[in-house]
C-alpha cells in the first residue's frame, strides 16, 4: 500500500535502516565469522584466523581452503555427539517436568478470582527478573551435602543419610525446571485465561462431567499454550551452560559447557565455532519445520 508522501517515506526508510544496519553488523556479520571460523584449522590458525574471505573472485580458493577437520572431529569423538544427545535429553526432561508442574499452576491461576490474577502473574514473573545466577546459587545451598534439604530431612526424621544430590543429573534437572518454569507458566496462563468459561458450562450442560469437560474442551484448546511454553523452555535449555556447570557433575556434560570449555580452557576457537554451528543447526531445524508446518496449515485454511 502506498501511503504518505516523499518525506514520510524517507523517514520510514530511516526508521527501518538504523536497527537494520545495527543487526546486520552485530548479529549477522558475527555469524558469518563463526561459520568461517568453524572451517578453520586450530593448529595453524591463531587469531585472526586465515583464510580471510577476500571477495567473490577468490571464492574457489576460499572454498578449497576450508577445513572440514572440526566437523569430522565432532562426528568421530563420542564426547561431542554424546553431549549433544545428552543436552537434548536434559532439555526434553526439563520441558516435561516443567509442563507437569506448570500446567496445574497456570490452570489454578487462570481459575482464581480475576482481581487476584494480576498479582499471581507478578509473583510468577518476579523470580524470572532476579538474577539467574542467584537462583542457581540458592539451590547449591539447598542441595549440597549437609545443606538445607539434608537438614530438613534429618530434622523430620525421614532419613539421616545425606542425599548427595549436588553434582548429579537430578540437581541439574531441579535447577533447570526451577529456572525455566516461568517460561512455561506464562504462555499457558495466557491461553487458559482467554479460554471462554462458557465453553465449560456448555460442556457440562451437554452432560460432560468435570474431568471429561477438561479433557475434551480445556486441554485441546490449551495446546497452543503448551506448544509455546514447551518451545520457550526446550530451546534455551539445550544450550544452557550455567546450570550444568554449577549444579552438575562430571557426567552431566551439556553442549553449552563443551563449547565454553573448548573456548576458554582449550582455546580451540575453530572447534568451539564448529560446536556452535552444529548446535544452532540442531535448534533451528526443528523450529523451521514447525514454522513451515504452521505456514502450510495457515495457507490451506
Amino acid at each position: 500500500m502506498r501511503t504518505g508522501n516523499a518525506p514520510t517515506r524517507r523517514l520510514g526508510r530511516l526508521v527501518v535502516a538504523v536497527p537494520y544496519l545495527w543487526l546486520l553488523l552485530f548479529f549477522l556479520a558475527p555469524f558469518a565469522i563463526v561459520l568461517r571460523m568453524a572451517f578453520s584449522d586450530a593448529a595453524t590458525d591463531l587469531p585472526p584466523y586465515a583464510p580471510h574471505f577476500q571477495g567473490f573472485s577468490q571464492l574457489g580458493e576460499f572454498i578449497a581452503a576450508l577445513d572440514l577437520e572440526n566437523f569430522r572431529l565432532l562426528g568421530d569423538d563420542p564426547l561431542y555427539w554424546q553431549s549433544y544427545l545428552y543436552s537434548l535429553r536434559i532439555a526434553a526432561l526439563t520441558t516435561l517436568i516443567a509442563l507437569a508442574i506448570g500446567y496445574p499452576l497456570a490452570y489454578a491461576m487462570a481459575s482464581a478470582p480475576r482481581r487476584w490474577q494480576s498479582l499471581l502473574l507478578v509473583l510468577v514473573i518476579l523470580p524470572f527478573w532476579t538474577s539467574f545466577l542467584i537462583r542457581v546459587y540458592a539451590w547449591i545451598g539447598i542441595l549440597r551435602p549437609e545443606g538445607l534439604l539434608d537438614m530438613v530431612l534429618a530434622g523430620t526424621g525421614v532419613t539421616s543419610e545425606p542425599l548427595r544430590l549436588l553434582n548429579t543429573e537430578a540437581a541439574v534437572l531441579i535447577g533447570m525446571v526451577y529456572s525455566y518454569l516461568p517460561f512455561m507458566v506464562l504462555p499457558l496462563f495466557a491461553t487458559l485465561q482467554k479460554l471462554d468459561r462458557s465453553l465449560l458450562e456448555a460442556a457440562a450442560d451437554l452432560g460432560a462431567p468435570a474431568w471429561t469437560a477438561f479433557a475434551t474442551v480445556t486441554l485441546p484448546l490449551s495446546i497452543p499454550g503448551i506448544l509455546a511454553g514447551s518451545a520457550l523452555v526446550f530451546i534455551p535449555a539445550v544450550g544452557e551452560f550455567v546450570i550444568p556447570d554449577l549444579l552438575g557433575g562430571p557426567d552431566t556434560v551439556m553442549i553449552g559447557k563443551v563449547l565454553w570449555s573448548e573456548f576458554f580452557s582449550n582455546r580451540d576457537w575453530p572447534l568451539a565455532s564448529a560446536v556452535a554451528v552444529v548446535l544452532l543447526f540442531v535448534l533451528v531445524a526443528p523450529l523451521a519445520l514447525l514454522q513451515r508446518a504452521r505456514l502450510t496449515r495457515g495457507g490451506a485454511a
Binding site: A29, I33, W269, A276
Partner: peptide, 14 residues
C-alpha cells in the same frame, strides 16, 4: 531463542 554461548562467541569473533 539463541543460546547465549553462541551469541557471545559470535560477537567475540567479530
Amino acid at each position: 531463542l539463541m543460546p547465549e554461548v553462541i551469541t557471545g562467541l559470535s560477537l567475540l569473533l567479530l
